[in-house]
Nucleic acid binder design. Structure first.
Lengths: 117, 117
DNA sequence: CGGGATCCCGATAGATACTG
DNA sequence: CAGTATCTATCGGGATCCCG
């Protein structure tokens, strides 16, 4: 991988690039969770439990990888406060914020067609 | 799975339902390909080559599974003409058509942010 | 022509244990 | 608290052959 993977998908259709970018079970929901501002690792982790099946917690390895991938695509930014105990938070970049309306479109459609009574 | 999986995802967030619905590499692009009307199996197959890496053709088993899944979710409808040689085509249902604008939002965003010069 | 059946493989996610 | 290391189970996708 070179240093700016944020501009991958060139030449192909935008949908393919989108698919790769949000691949994985949690990326879209993480982005949505960050739409109101920065959140800490543990907050994101807890937030992902609501809305799922509620049974199992997400494995730290998985969440970590999702966050790294999102950061690499330039959608979120990691901020390490370097304190002890450690504090790290994640926030949307401008590019990430520009993606929020798309998620909103998805959410609205899903709400209308996918949620039973 | 029971017989009406088209209304799954109740209770959870719409994004999860969306993710399950369009999981796989081709589903969104198939839907997009059908936005202008019905297409035959082979046409869809060929259409998926453009925009990809162009190297390999999609395995019939994979395409078949994607189409079945989309039909099961109620997004497309399969029409078998029962002739010989066989002719089958697929078209969007009203629900599938309602999803097109969402794909368009994805496409537009991807075009603006993901495609390099 | 439009698939189904079978085998294989890489990527991904879950569980568990450990650490700066 | 915010991760990393390891291991394993599962899944989605590709290749190939075959059939109505």
């Amino acid at each position: 991988m070179d240093k700016n993977d944020s501009k991958r998908g060139r030449g192909g259709c935008p949908v393919l690039a989108f698919q790769r970018m949000v691949s994985g079970k949690y990326k879209i929901r993480i982005l949505w969770d960050l739409k109101d501002g920065a959140r800490r690792y543990g907050e994101i982790r807890s937030g992902l439990l609501r809305g799922g099946d509620g049974s199992a917690a997400i494995a730290p390895r998985v969440l970590s990888r999702e966050l790294k991938a999102l950061a690499q695509f330039g959608l979120i930014q990691r901020k390490d406060y370097g304190t002890v105990p450690p504090k790290v938070d994640y926030r949307l970049t401008p590019m990430g914020k520009s993606f929020v309306p798309v998620i909103d479109a998805i959410r609205k459609w899903g709400h209308r067609h996918l949620t039973a009574a």
